[in-house]
């Protein structure tokens, strides 16, 4: 069984967010990068499936510039068997920022086709752009069935049964044949850390670079990026912890009336 896990490298959660000089993107200069968290859960599910199945190959896939190799190495250190890096320019024509979600999914889908995977896993959405589309679009491009918001995967004879999340705490089981694509919701598993041995082994594992196809014409266009304007007037309290606490107690008593 071959499982491909598509991951994205995103700015760290606490990253200082600034608008790029052209006002149409994110200023990436001082950003530190990490593996998109839902994708880390997709990787974890793949590794656990491999452990349960006994025999499987886990291939981790990422599109982006040189820097994404650190995220691919991290996945290898956690236990993925090999990595495929779809290389795009850092900026300008052909870079990820210049492509729409359809085009990025196309890059990934082409790489998946070359692997002829039985199962493709990815996170349900990215923590940066939050479109939540790449996986579903890839499934359509690959012509395979899919399920989203998946928490657990069970291998059946010739297919899979997944537990997926519905809204308001409801769940659902869905069965489908393989090959298939699943977008994984966080929280289904506990994430593992890379061990020292894993990090050492990762250096010996294959990291194959493939060049990205030229960018297609965008369907949508980002015309402006800006910090949000406040809709609500927020009163910001300052001072020592004790002063803030005293002010809050006053408000809780006389305005909110919960004390």
């Amino acid at each position: 069984m071959k499982i491909v896990v598509a991951v994205k490298q995103v700015p760290e959660r606490d990253a200082v967010v600034r608008v790029a000089a052209d006002g149409r993107g994110l200023d990436e200069r001082d950003v530190t990068w990490t593996m998109n968290e839902p994708d880390a859960y997709a990787l974890e599910e793949a590794l656990q499936l491999k452990e349960r199945a006994g025999e499987a190959e886990v291939v981790v896939l990422c599109a982006g510039p040189e820097r994404v190799q650190s995220t691919l190495r991290e996945a290898l250190a956690k236990g993925a068997d090999r990595a495929v890096h779809v290389v795009t320019p850092e900026s300008g024509a052909g870079s990820l920022g210049e492509r729409d979600s359809l085009d990025v999914a196309r890059l990934l889908a082409e790489a998946v086709k070359a692997e002829a995977a039985d199962l493709v896993l990815t996170g349900l959405q990215s923590d940066d752009l939050g479109a939540g589309q790449t996986g579903v679009v890839m499934a359509e491009l690959l012509g395979v069935p899919h399920a989203t918001l998946v928490l657990q995967v069970e291998l059946l004879g010739n297919g899979i049964k997944v537990k997926r999340e519905l809204e308001d705490g409801w769940m659902q089981q869905v069965e489908m044949p393989l090959p298939a694509l699943l977008t994984v919701q966080s929280g289904g598993n506990r994430l593992r850390y890379a061990t020292l041995m894993g990090i050492k082994r990762a250096r010996q594992k294959e990291m194959r670079e493939v060049s990205a196809a030229a960018a297609a014409k965008r369907v949508d266009e980002v015309v402006k990026v800006s910090p949000p304007t406040r809709v609500k007037r927020t009163e910001m309290l300052t001072g020592s912890a004790d002063e803030i606490a005293a002010t809050l107690v006053e408000r809780l008593r006389f305005e909110v009336k919960v004390l």
Partner: peptide, 18 residues
């Protein structure tokens, strides 16, 4: 123009259909 959020709500991005 369609407004959607980036970076967990830290930025607003304005989109047009091509």
């Amino acid at each position: 123009v369609f407004v959607r959020q980036w970076m967990q709500g830290k930025l607003n991005a304005e989109y047009r259909h091509g």
